[in-house]
Amino acid sequence: MELLLQQTVNALSLGGVYAMLALGLAIVFSIVRLINFAHGEIMTFGGYGIFLSLVFGFPPVAALIIGLAAAVVMALAMERTAFRAMRGADVVSLLITSFAVSEILKVLFQNGISARPVPITFPASWSGTYQVGDITFGVVPTVSILVTLAALAGLTFLLRRTVSGMAMRAAAEDIEMLRLLGIRANRVVAVAFALSGLLAGIAAVIWTAQRGSVDPMMGFFPVLKAFIATVLGGLGSLGGAVLGGFAIGIVEVLAQAFLPETLAPYRDAIVLAAVIAALLWRPDGLLPAAKTSRS
C-alpha cells in the first residue's frame, strides 16, 4: 500500500513533466506544424538560467523565476530567428530546421557553460519529506504534481476563456483564416511559443529540483519522451499530449518499480516498445486531432 501510494506520486510527478513538455510541443505543432526538436534546449536553457542566477547570488525563489523567464526568452528567440522565416514550409523542413537548431544549441551549451553536469543546490527544506499517517512522501514530487495541475488548469482557462487563447485555438484550425479576420498571426504564434517556453521552464524547475544538476543534454531526453507522448496522444491534439505524457510517465515508473533486476537496463526500450505497440492499436493516437482536409 505504502509502495503503491509512493509510486503513484512518483508516476504523477514524472508524468506531469512529460505532460507539460508534450503540451508545449503540441501547442506549437497545432499552430505552425512544427515538431520542435529544440524544445529540449529551451528546457535546458531554463535550467542554466536557474544555475547562473544562483551562482550570481540570487535567492532561490528569484532564481526559479529567472529560470522560467530564460525559457520563455529562449522560446521567443528561437521563433524569431529560426522559425519565423520558415512559416508555411512543409513539416519535414520545419522539423529538420529545429533539429539543426537543437544540435547547434547543445554544442553552444557545452562550450559556453560546461559539457559536464553543473550542480544546483536548493535549500534543504525543499527536498525534505513529510508524513501522512505512516507513509512518507517527498516534498518535491508532491509540489511538482500541484504545480503541474495548476499549470494545466491555468492553460485550459487561458485557451478557453481569453481572447488570445481563443485566437490560438482558431489558429490551430486555420491560421490563414485567422489572418483574413485581421488578427495578427505573428502575435498568436509568438504567444504560443511563449507558452510552450513557459511550460518547458516549469518542467526545468521541477526537473532540476529533483536531480540537483544541469547538463547540456538535460532537456533533450525528457523531450524525446514527450515527442513520443504527443504521438501517443495524437499529434496536434492538446488533450492527447497531456494524456500521452501522463501515460508514459506512469508506464515508466511502473517499469522502474516492478521490472525484474535483469531487465533494468532495457527499461526505456521496453517503455517505448510498449508505446509503439499501443500505436499499432490506435495509429492516430489516443485522442486524435480533428482532421480538416477535404477531397
Binding site: 515538431i35 504521438v231 509503439i276
Partner: peptide
Amino acid sequence: GASATIATLGL
C-alpha cells in the same frame, strides 16, 4: 508523416 518520424526516433 511526422508521427512516423517520431516513431523512427523511438526505434
